[in-house]
């Protein structure tokens, strides 16, 4: 398969008949050959889920590419633009599968006032430094309780602490990825401004963790 220029791709995909079918077939092959690299961190090609996943992703990618063809601005290679779409689709699907059994409420476990903070003692830290760090963490959490709305706190804990994907948190909150990112941004900014108003920076507080 010889390499096509951006113009070749666009001309063929905008046409009909054999030219269009040929371009779609070539694009499909490029996507299928590229996804193993993209997904290598998450799924090995020998995994039985691998092939069905990339077939599904390739199909969905072609549909989305055709749907958005006129938004391609030509600032990159056409295939690079296609790769961003296929990766978005593939990782969204992987995240959905990975987190489907996990609810937001589960991630908030440990929020009851009677629960003690789960903390593994740092064996290299002396007792005084460890106690200081525990006190700082308790104060951070207290600040979050006072400064943030419940929604902000839930989202921040889920994403920043528990590592839940933003898209998954958004889905559970009846929101979308952009809106959730904005919610998180507002929460972070609130906390940062609060520290600034108190004359302290997170950097100063962080220095306590570096002892």
């Amino acid at each position: 398969m010889s390499e096509r220029s951006n113009e070749d791709w666009l001309t063929s995909l905008r046409s009909s008949g054999k030219a269009k079918q040929g371009a779609l077939a070539d694009l499909r092959e490029i996507i299928l050959n590229s996804l193993p690299y993209a997904l290598s961190k998450y799924l090995h090609p020998t995994n039985p889920h691998f092939d069905p996943l990339i077939q599904e992703v390739a199909q969905e990618t072609l549909l989305r590419v055709m749907d958005r063809l006129e938004t391609f601005e030509g600032r990159s290679k056409f295939t690079t633009w296609v790769h961003t779409i296929s990766v978005r689709i593939a990782l969204t699907e992987l995240r959905r599968a990975r987190w489907k059994e996990v609810s937001l409420d589960e991630l908030q476990n440990g929020m009851d006032s009677d629960d003690k903070m789960r903390e593994m003692p740092d064996q290299d830290m002396d007792v005084e430094a460890s106690a200081e760090q525990s006190e700082i963490m308790a104060m951070i959490q207290k600040t979050m309780m006072e400064i943030l709305t419940e929604k902000q706190r839930k989202a921040l804990m889920a994403v920043a602490v528990r590592g839940m994907p933003i898209a998954e948190v958004a889905d559970r909150m009846g929101s979308n990825r952009n809106a959730l990112y904005k919610l998180l941004h507002d929460a972070r900014l609130k906390l940062k401004n609060h520290f600034d108003e108190q004359g302290m920076t997170p950097e100063n507080i962080l220095s306590s963790f570096e002892k």
Binding site: E119, I140, Q141, M144, M157, Y181, L189, T201, P202, L206
Partner: peptide, 29 residues
């Protein structure tokens, strides 16, 4: 008063995110 379970590594990670927060940030889209 409710406590959220958080390890020191997680608290540190969160503080670094807060430290690097900017007033204007791009959206995912």
């Amino acid at each position: 008063e409710k406590k959220m379970a958080m390890t020191s590594d997680q608290a540190e990670k969160m503080l670094r995110m807060i430290e690097h927060t900017q007033a204007e940030e791009l959206s995912c889209d």
